[in-house]
Write a protein that binds this DNA or RNA. Structure first.
Lengths: 356, 356
DNA sequence: ATTTATTTCGTAAACGTTTAAGTAGATTTT
DNA sequence: AAAATCTACTTAAACGTTTACGAAATAAAT
């Protein structure tokens, strides 16, 4: 059993009332310097710590937020969480966390638990799966504010959301490949029900269109496990060994891109000369793989920080904009640089690449 | 303002006492089927959810644990957290999280906050920095159980801890390199105050000794930012361009190892023929980099799950072993396989490598 | 000396629960 | 018919706080 000491213990030890002790510790009015010092000393001596639950009950306010992410060992989400925690710690908020694993039922259970534990707000990156409006309905009916991160809902206007310009990021990536002289650009995307994957596909199409290229359906492949390299390997092998093979790949994650590296190596081809590659997320992999991978940067930490700011503002006075979209930025590295002129720029900048 | 409804609201609506409502919802004795159904229906209708804080106050028990990690965007720690959350969710515990950033003051603040919020236990992977016995002292005085993960204390016997056999992992790695014919094996390690880095160094020495090789101090380098490739690049370049150059590297992280890849590529050398490399942690990088990196696997998720089990047992009845050490396992990949006989085994196994 | 103000403390209620104890009324036992 | 038991409910206290209100003691003003 833990060993808690409350106001009552201090009061009893000093023969004063609980009220007096409370006032002393909270630096309130109506108290003499003598008794206050006496009480502070005794509190220190007994190792007193206030009970946040009692305070929550009495004051009807609780400085805690809940965070729901599909998976915390995913690099992007872990950086989002980091951003949230940075701000939360400074603002003295407690961070409670749950992992939905893209499971709607689990997501719901977590929300239920958060409500029971009186969070004053929720930051959620919803599961890929379709209609989860229901999961948020409970929060809405309880008037507990929530902020969406990264993944918009289908029907959701009037939702507070911190998002990333997935479409434009894809556009930048593909446009860059085209400018580098690639003409037959394949895309490996995720499932069709994944909104962000579709947004990136849209950017891909727009870049082709903008540059007068037509879309070849054979060059668009779907992929289930986008966080592993396996399908990237197989799909690219299939494409690169076919009659009409692409000269570049745009993938929805860096992991898929790394699978393509393997194919290219096995086939004895060369990146970026024969095959150009651009990934997505600018994860650790991209700056460590060889040649370094051009990738669309997603500022997870900034997005997390912004989400917390939104939430805090909403909690305090329901002010806060409805939406903030983070601009995409392409980090250009060797994997897509056919004309070697710019390679010097790459090292010059910061050894990680130069932004466009 | 959130929109809470309590037992009182249900009681008032049905003209019964709060006690009756409580008993109905908790399936207690002393209640007729009629009134119980009536109450359940009304609770549903009003969207009632119990207030965990009130229950915590009254019952003096709270199903929540605190987790403190140095950094959540570090892959190993994020998998530890994942393991903890898996188990915690099943056991219906709330998970509160704090990131210490290797900052002792912040670590202390987080512990203080956890205590205030009545966690019934803490899982902590302590900061690298030296004497943090003090930070844990408060938990001890409050009799709040805690479990250490991964990083042992200097003085700590009688601490509950889930650890990894860092020394043996290093031994496996270096012994493997020697068996592959490498003789001049360098190590890039972390700071001297980092206990796990030292344990790995010990394993390195033992493997050399066991195989009748002597330690060359010029082949041992220290590194500050072990989670980035930069120093790995510079230190290895310095060593590989010197008169007496190593023929293999053992590094304390995969990130450092990836820096060596860059050096080797720049110098036009070949992995694994001219330079063998083994990393540590078996992070995502190791199976994505080319050639694939041999690395010591750390089962973060299992360690997290074990930590939760330890904690839960300790909370319940103070049973639970004091310590569990996870055995090191070496995942052998191309970066250290000089005799190509075994390369076939690598692909055969699982495309990721074969364990030793 | 009486009134008025000021300082410093205590009393009691409240937050949302649970639970020990008490109490009617109905039912059973003697 | 009285006594005992059972059923289904209520009252009240408690958990650890905060806070409106009241009150005693001292100081200041009349």
């Amino acid at each position: 059993m833990p060993n808690r000491v409350g106001l009552k213990d201090i009061a009893k030890a000093l023969n004063v009332s609980v009220t007096t002790v409370s006032r002393a510790l909270n630096n309130k009015f109506d108290i003499s310097k003598d008794t206050r010092d006496k009480i502070l000393k005794k509190a220190e001596e007994l190792n007193y710590r206030p009970n946040a639950h009692a305070i929550s009950l009495r004051k009807n306010e609780y400085y805690a937020i809940g965070v729901i992410l599909p998976s915390i060992d995913h690099y992007f989400f872990s950086t989002v969480l980091k951003g949230i925690m940075n701000k939360a710690h400074m603002a003295n908020y407690l961070v409670i966390i749950g992992e939905s694993s893209h499971d709607l039922v689990k997501e719901q259970e977590i929300i239920e638990k958060f409500i029971a534990h009186c969070v004053s707000g929720v930051i959620i990156s919803p599961s890929n799966k379709s209609s989860y409006g229901n999961n948020l309905a409970l929060l809405k009916s309880k008037r507990i504010p929530y902020i969406l991160v990264d993944r918009p809902l289908e029907d959701s206007k009037n939702e507070r959301i911190v998002r990333f310009d997935d479409e434009y990021g894809a556009f930048l990536a593909v446009d860059h490949l085209i400018k580098q002289g690639y003409r037959k650009i394949a895309m490996i995307k995720g499932f069709d029900y994944c909104t962000i994957s579709n947004a990136r596909f849209k950017g891909y199409k727009k870049a082709l269109e903008n540059n007068g290229l037509s879309l070849n359906p054979d060059f668009v492949k779907h992929c289930g496990f986008i966080d592993e390299s396996g399908e990237g390997y197989h799909l690219s092998k299939q494409m690169l060994t076919s009659m009409n093979r692409p000269d570049a790949f745009f993938t929805v994650t860096d992991e898929i891109a790394s699978g393509i590296y393997q194919t290219v190596n096995e086939l004895g081809m060369k990146i970026p000369n024969e095959v150009g590659i651009v990934g997505y997320s600018n994860s650790k992999i991209s700056s460590v793989i060889s040649p370094r991978l051009t990738s669309v940067e997603q500022p997870g930490m900034l997005m997390g920080e912004q989400a917390f700011d939104f939430l805090q503002q909403t909690i305090i006075d329901n002010s806060s904009t409805l939406e903030r979209t983070f601009e995409a930025r392409l980090v250009v590295r060797a994997s897509s640089l056919r004309n070697h002129i710019q390679t010097s720029t790459v090292t010059k900048e910061n050894n990680y690449g130069v932004s466009v």
